[in-house]
Amino acid sequence: MGTIEFIISKYNYWIYVLLMMIGFYAMIAKRNLVKKIVGMNIFQTAIILFFVSTGSKKGASIPIIQNGHGDVVSHAVNAAQYVNPLPHVLMLTAIVVMVSTFGVALALIIMIYRKYGTLEEDEIFEMSEILRLRK
């Protein structure tokens, strides 16, 4: 296998790993909580893209049976003709869970902002120390 074929057959995984690294760095290095949440979303997007790309088949069509309006299909269904539907299903649920996670995280962030008046991590630590000592 030549170098060009190797790159062509694997470069999609490299793109997803790079995307995941961006999200992971934002999750652990950024101080702002909203930036952390956006990093988590980028991370999840990379994983969703990875799963969907595992289901692709070269020369295949979308996973809807052609001329299938009825109880019996008139022609034999060849599995190599349609892309793998299983990653699509799993990622459809994962996308909706991602949206729910994002909503709940934003609600929690609003609550944190109401209590501490800031979203920077170190300032929240200082504020919580002050609030603890004041008690």
Partner: peptide, 17 residues
């Protein structure tokens, strides 16, 4: 369910409750 949850999340977050 998805419609109602979308509206509820958006209204609550956009207006702060």
């Amino acid at each position: 369910a998805v419609m109602a949850v979308m509206i509820s999340i958006f209204l609550n977050i956009a207006s702060g409750g």
